[in-house]
């Protein structure tokens, strides 16, 4: 299968690979997927007092599209407020990266990782966990 240029670019030059201190109170960590499924994504956000995401990092075990999806997600997260970040939809990622149908689940994983990171941040800061609909694409 041929990958889109944008996927290749993110794969070759991934943005924001790395690790934030997951014990820090202003860091939210989302770890989604499973090794058995061939994809594990860890996405982290760092939030300032005003609720703005000042930094985002990822590490991903998975195919090129999963790596590209998480790389793109971190780019989009930086500079957004947590509330804005909640609005990132996996189909935006699909569109931006030109993912073919068999790769949609890679983008779903990225969306799940964002939400899971936000929830981790919320819980750490005494906020209520947001319930999301189960994504069914997996």
């Amino acid at each position: 299968m041929a990958y889109s240029e944008k996927v290749i670019d993110h794969y070759q030059n991934p943005k924001n690979v790395g690790t934030l201190d997951k014990s820090a109170k202003n860091v939210g960590t989302g770890l989604v997927g499973a090794p058995e499924c061939g994809d594990v994504m860890r996405l982290q956000i760092q939030v300032d007092d005003a609720g703005m995401i000042t930094d985002a990092k990822f590490k991903t075990f998975g195919c090129g599209s999963a790596i590209a999806s998480s790389s793109l997600a971190t780019e989009w997260l930086k500079g957004k407020s947590v509330d804005e970040a909640l609005k990132i939809d996996n189909m935006d990622i699909v569109e931006e990266l030109n993912l073919p149908p068999v790769k949609i689940h890679c983008s779903v994983l990225a969306e799940d990782a964002i939400k899971s990171a936000i929830n981790d941040y919320r819980v750490k800061n005494g906020l209520e966990e947001i319930k999301f609909e189960e994504s069914v694409v997996h």
Binding site: I8, G38, F61, G62, C63, G64
Partner: peptide, 11 residues
């Protein structure tokens, strides 16, 4: 171990 085959192939 700890790298996924398809992602690896893409390299």
């Amino acid at each position: 171990k700890h790298v996924e085959g398809e992602g690896l192939l893409m390299g």
